[in-house]
Nucleic acid binder design. Structure first.
Lengths: 207, 207
DNA sequence: ACATGTGAACTGCTTCACAGCG
DNA sequence: CGCTGTGAAGCAGTTCACATGT
């Protein structure tokens, strides 16, 4: 299959949210124009995005909501549950462990890890924090799919190396650090300081 | 000044981090190539990014680390403190309130707000949660610059309307929702569900 | 008549390659 | 000679516009 732009995949996620709304309201079909307005894009963009994966619409009518919803779920790989380890039981890690938005979409947190002996064994939002030393053994048994990194920047690269060795192919990184990893490991970084600095730049440079 | 791409601004933030490292180590100059390797980009990209704002380097030598650091700080508007309100004292809001990375870069959280009477008055990481009803009055007095939104998706649009009316020109949104706002208000959205779905897509579609 | 699907045109970001200067 | 600064070329993502199917 042809390589798909990351921006396209992000928009598919958005469309999916809107479609779920429309589905719940019992709307049978939806036009690219309607989806576009809801998502802050253009109808041509919507049609192009979808066209990479097939022809889901009917000319003159639009897209069948239920079908398209199912199709996008399939495309995004949301037809199953993904097992998630959270690495780091600090404030961010604990907040993520209790974040309902994850489970609702099929991302099931199954454990939280930390190196700090004072945290290990204690609860972090319904999870008993596990010792980082167990990670490899646990991962071999539980076969988790995704690691969410919520640790200080200093420790990130060694930890990523460990996760890669343990077999993780997908990492969501919340630490403000640049990461090196093999090409077959997908990493998404959420860097809050970076976002804030973008706002700072915007505030400082409007005329 | 010419419009600068968001991608360029993001990279400047990254360069700044690396430059601070190099500065601390006492390295006097740095080449575009060195910066590029550290940031996972190319030397041409680094030079192009910087060239939008001026000529900071010396041919044959590279860039003076201390000077360039100061320049980028200036460009990003980091030569001052920005006052931040956090809206929403749930798990995410509370975690953000205690996040050291903010203050370290000049983003000073001065208050946390919530509508839930059970939370108001109680502490959320060293802050006593304020009633959302006070927001407008407080904002008129304290003149905050940035609002960080950490509330459920349903309430986002009305809250944004309120923040805009209260004078906020910059919003960092953690809710999984699309937002409408006037053009002179800058909004950055961090949507964790979206990032996870990007990973799901990557895991499902590698050959 | 209406709305999709899609080549073609366009826009804008990235990469190239080299002149220019220390 | 080394490394910057930058026009020009290349490429990727978006928008246009229309032929096509219902």
């Amino acid at each position: 299959m042809k390589r798909i732009a990351e921006s396209t995949v992000r928009r598919l996620s958005l469309y999916l949210r809107f479609l779920e709304d429309f589905e719940q309201r019992g709307q049978p079909t939806i036009s690219s124009d309607e989806l576009a307005r809801r998502g802050g894009t253009t109808s041509a963009q919507v049609r192009k995005d979808l066209s990479f994966f097939g022809s889901f619409g009917k000319r003159g009518l639009g897209y069948p909501v239920a079908e398209l919803t199912a199709q996008i779920r399939e495309i995004l790989g949301l037809g199953r549950e993904w097992k998630v380890y959270i690495i780091g039981a600090g404030k961010i890690g604990a907040a993520l462990a209790g974040y309902r938005g994850f489970r609702d979409r099929g991302f099931v947190v199954i454990a939280v890890y930390d190196t700090d002996p004072r945290k290990v064994g204690h609860p972090a939002d319904e999870f008993s924090v596990r010792d980082m030393g167990q990670l490899e053994r646990d991962a071999a048994r539980e076969k988790p799919d995704i690691a969410v990194l919520a640790i200080p920047a200093e420790g990130v690269q060694p930890t990523v190396d460990r996760l890669v060795k343990a077999g993780f192919k997908a990492i969501l990184n919340f630490a403000p650090a640049q990461i090196q990893a093999p090409a077959d490991v997908t990493i998404r970084t959420v860097n809050m300081a970076l976002e804030l600095e973008g706002l700072s730049y915007a505030l400082s440079n409007r005329d």
